[in-house]
Design a protein around this nucleic acid. Sequence first.
DNA 1: AAGTGTGAAAAGTTTCACAGCG
DNA 2: CGCTGTGAAACTTTTCACACTT
Lengths: 212, 212
Amino acid sequence: MEAPDKSGKVDIPKKAIYRLSLYHRCLQKLHDNGVNTVSSTTLARAAGVKPAQLRKDLAYFGQFGTRGLGYPVEILSSVIRESLGREHLQPVILVGAGNLGSALLRYRGFEKEGFEVVAAFDANPEAAIARGVTIPVFPDTEIEAFVRARAVKLTILCVPAEFAQSVVNRLVGSGIQGVLNFSPITLEVPAEVTVNNVDLALELEHLSYFIR
Amino acid sequence: MEAPDKSGKVDIPKKAIYRLSLYHRCLQKLHDNGVNTVSSTTLARAAGVKPAQLRKDLAYFGQFGTRGLGYPVEILSSVIRESLGREHLQPVILVGAGNLGSALLRYRGFEKEGFEVVAAFDANPEAAIARGVTIPVFPDTEIEAFVRARAVKLTILCVPAEFAQSVVNRLVGSGIQGVLNFSPITLEVPAEVTVNNVDLALELEHLSYFIR
DNA sequence: AAGTGTGAAAAGTTTCACAGCG
DNA sequence: CGCTGTGAAACTTTTCACACTT
């Protein structure tokens, strides 16, 4: 009964999609522990949300539970995986392999969750390689060719703030559709491109408001 | 006329507080460029929000603008700074100086925004020091004594997921009130402690939903 | 008995539109 | 005239409460 929105997807709260990733991770953990079935109460506690919210979030995608019993861990996990568009391995590139960028490359957090960082780009590839980065690092002039050739859609952006907008313009022009932006700057992109900002100093500043 | 809530603060949307940090940063940039006065339209564009929202957000804290003219950059900047509790330099510690943690230490993003990371703690301080960290790195057994002695209220947490909860318990027990958590896990803390999660893999997963 | 699925109410947030001030 | 400050409307998201299923 719901009308699809302009992008062709039904109306699902944006925050629900964030939580879906959270549920997905919790389900994987349960699966690793050999759990087959989980109730909304238990899964919600693991994810740090209320049971009613979890049930409502899942209901946006269908009916997966059994009344009186709970949700089948493995099935629910695949359903979420599919809903998030994670059935296929997504190649990701990283642009700006300075201090933060090269640390993210050495950090295995992305691989653990099933993303493959296939290449990095920097104005000075040698410096990044010297920092102990093991994946290929190319000069930033090669971004466009690589993104087009490999049809890369996701990028992690760690360049200094003053270069971020011009780099993102080039990325978008080459076909990038999602940007995980670590530069403390508001990026301007076309509506069809999604930007997620991770602004570390901002997060600290936000915290400082709450510490009485 | 507004009733204060339990914590003694008036009812301000949580998201407005996030945006306040954003405005603060934009104002500093304007100030550096010698701008004295700014309209809601201009400042809102810089911050990536709508003018009406900016005005509403500022109105939660008082009346700072001049009708027909705009806002005084320097005054507004200090007012926000004060509202956020940033008048005084806040000491911050970092726990878990592994790959990601030591990168954050070398990265100067926090200092640039006026936070001083005064010490780091790790199970293996030598390894962190070998990674080129220049601020003091202590064994994690010394966390409690340090936090109490220096009255540290903010911490950046970068320990592996399996240790995060027990470390945060110790931090909270020592008086920490704000945690910037990089571990991909839901932390349980008392209500008076604020946790901000930065979950890198989750952000990527969230993006992958939006790339068609 | 246990636990999902869901309408409807409540709460929270954003946007509008315009009165009013400098 | 230009631009702020703000009530009221619109919209979004969360929570409740209970009918319903296994």
